[in-house]
Simulated scan of single mutants.
Amino acid sequence: MAKKKNTTEQDLIAFYMDYVLEHSEQPKSVYAFSKMNNFEESKFYEHFSTFETLEKGVFKAFLTNTLLVLEANEDYQKFDPRDKLLSFYFTFFENLTANRSYVVYALKQHKGSLKSLTVLTDLKAGFCNYIEHLDIETLDIKEDRLEKLQQRSLRETAWLQLLLTMKFWLDDTSASFMKTDIFIEKAVNTSFDLLDIKPLKSLIDFGKFIYKEKFSSH
């Protein structure tokens, strides 16, 4: 039988997910994996160096698919950052739910907290980049070092919130994961309420006014 010539990254991910769900373990080797799925071994290395990098690619693909769906939605383009992030969450977790058996396998086979899982490193990089380009309003700090620190804190906090939501979803036993939907809405709204800088801006402006009035009169 002739080998498949056009084996894509998506094909490899699908082959791998099917294999581990059927066997509850990684393939024994790239050679065995390629032979089983009838493609040239070299095709694997065009996209991934190891099965571990492929595993990272699975979670990156969940993110990529989510962003493609959102970017194709004209209404999404008009949303403010809060509604954009809510849309991201609901779409991302629809992707996870559609592949729940694999996600549970991939995350629960590793020991330790989700935060320490290397399989999520590509997902984190992509998600943090997404957060950075959401244009979430923060304090206007006229100092580069402090501004970078503020942006880093925002990205890390957003990433931690995503991990907490994934953990909640993994443990959710409600029908259609309705409790996760509620968790998402409350978590995202709460985080944006905490980020609301308008009261703080007003306080700073008031402080500037008091300072000006107090000291300009002397």
Rank of each mutant, 00 (worst) to 15 (best):
R100F: 09
G57E: 08
R82G: 00
P81V: 04
L86V: 08
D80N: 15
V58F: 07
F93N: 02
K78A: 07
L67E: 07
L63S: 09
L70T: 07
Y76C: 03
N95D: 04
E71W: 06
S101R: 12
L63Y: 15
K84P: 06
A72G: 06
S87W: 04
Y89V: 10
E71S: 14
A72H: 09
D83W: 11
S87I: 10
V69N: 06
L70S: 06
F90E: 12
V69Q: 11
D75P: 00
L86Q: 01
S87M: 11
L85F: 08
Y89A: 13
V58L: 03
K78E: 11
T91L: 05
V69R: 10
R100A: 08
L85N: 03
K60F: 04
E71M: 12
A72Q: 13
K60E: 14
N65Y: 02
E74L: 10
L67P: 01
Y102H: 06
A98H: 09
K60I: 01
F62T: 01
K84A: 04
Q77T: 12
A72T: 10
K84F: 05
N99P: 05
P81H: 04
E94I: 12
F93D: 01
N99H: 15
A61C: 02
K56P: 00
S101G: 05
L68S: 13
E55P: 03
L68R: 13
L54E: 00
R100K: 14
E55Q: 12
L68E: 15
R82T: 11
A72R: 12
L85H: 08
